[in-house]
Design a protein around this nucleic acid. Structure first.
Lengths: 249, 249
DNA sequence: CGCAATATTGAAATAAGTCAAACCGTGTGG
DNA sequence: CCACACGGTTTGACTTATTTCAATATTGCG
């Protein structure tokens, strides 16, 4: 489903996390985003494994996740996407090896290869911003591997909570140490390679220790310093701007 | 340590897996590879977490792995690199979130951003080849996540064996269903998020079932079809050229 | 109101981890 | 040429984190 108005702000906000954009550059990006904008409702696959894609898809509103499946039905979430995240690294007409599924009502937009090229040629900062975003996305994925391979249940879940806090702060979607977290325990289990039952028990444990509160999809990290320490969270791989938000010098 | 002669073939072989290169393009790439070539001996970190990098580093000889570490010493291997693999996605002056360590004596070369840009502008095929390589590297990483999150010990190890067979075939480094596999059981454990003891028992199991033989760092997959089926290996995410090798049309 | 999707709890089962020792090939040095 | 040290592999016995199964709350929603 298409929409006319522009959700381009989310992309600008994101690039602002990494590079300084002039108003001319912002305008040019806005301009390039004239292409199709899509709206998708909660709990829907909007890009499917096997689809051929080119250009760049950017999530501009809502939450989504990247899903890999085994033929026998086992499901692994390999990343959560929030506004400004790029759904897939830009490739000429390649088949997707994963699906993208929305957690909430979401919007995304598509940038064609030509428009993108023009932007990059005209504005090196755009190019750099996209490159950094791409690198950070890779770092997040590598840390997901570290998570699954080396951390236990408590650490996996705690680390994810910390990571999402920093990522959401960067795009202005966190309040202090809390944020809207539209992920069920079942999905959390699919993301962490655990059982829903065990995820539940682990979260209870966190609550009992006074580390987090989680109810009605609202997550609050009650003692970030202690949690981050317990799960060995170090935000440098996210290259967050100082203070966790975009406004610097 | 630097060398003068060119290991550029490995890069060409790899790009050949994805795009058709004219002899002019091959020559231009060779030419661009005039930059520093490095030689590193077995079991050495040659790029370190925290290092600032730019341009592209290509492994041209030997095996290496990408390592992530936790402050308490836990180690997770997040990928094996073989000749033609790119060590890190091209980024302007970014800090590495992982280390690269050689398993065998290895070579790698560095391509500066300018040289790379020139190549890409002059030869779209080079650009496309690099983009596809990048995409496949991402797919491999995502499948590693799937592996760690959803597969059991047997499936994880078996899947890795299958994946490396296809990847090595594509660059002409496999004989039939066997290949040199310079990875100790300890490293295999670090890659699969298991214990060396458990890796050992699992491999014994594979041997007992007549699926693989592994001795003196030589791995032979005795029944690829059955193994691939048991561990649910499907090579499409590697985008291998038909037949698993570069020579088509 | 009442279904359907989540969350929670308990008890029993199991894959994988831990600890610790023995084994093996191989290269080195006396 | 033997001894011995080293890195890697193998084996056994025991522990534990996580899964499984199954039942019972709870919540959101049409």
């Amino acid at each position: 489903m298409k929409r006319g108005d522009s959700d381009c702000e989310a992309l600008l906000t994101r690039l602002d996390c990494f590079v300084r954009l002039s108003s001319e550059q912002r305008a040019a990006i806005m301009n390039a985003c004239f292409g199709p904008h899509y709206i998708v409702r909660a709990k829907a696959d909007f890009l499917r494994q096997g689809d051929r894609m080119s250009g760049l898809h950017v999530l501009t509103k809502g939450w989504a996740y990247r899903l890999l499946m085994l033929p026998d039905g086992r499901r692994q979430i390999a990343g959560f996407l929030v506004p400004g995240d790029i759904c897939m690294t830009e490739v000429p007409d390649m088949r997707l090896d994963f699906s993208l599924s929305s957690l909430t009502d979401s919007h995304y937009l598509h940038l064609g290869n030509q428009a993108l090229d023009r932007l990059r040629v005209a504005y090196p900062a755009v190019r750099e911003g996209l490159a950094i975003h791409n690198h950070v996305a890779g770092a997040i994925l590598r840390n997901w591997v570290l998570n699954l391979g080396q951390r236990n249940a408590f650490e996996r879940i705690g680390h994810l909570f910390c990571e999402m806090l920093i990522r959401l702060r960067c795009i202005g979607m966190a309040q202090n140490d809390g944020y809207h977290f539209p992920v069920t325990q079942i999905e959390l289990a699919e993301a962490t390679g655990l059982t829903p039952v065990h995820v539940n028990r682990t979260i209870q444990d966190m609550r009992a220790r006074g580390l987090v509160s989680l109810q009605n999809r609202e997550l609050k990290i009650l003692d970030f310093a202690r949690l981050a320490n317990l799960v060995m969270f170090d935000a440098t791989y996210l290259h967050p701007v100082a203070g966790g938000c975009a406004q610097d010098g």
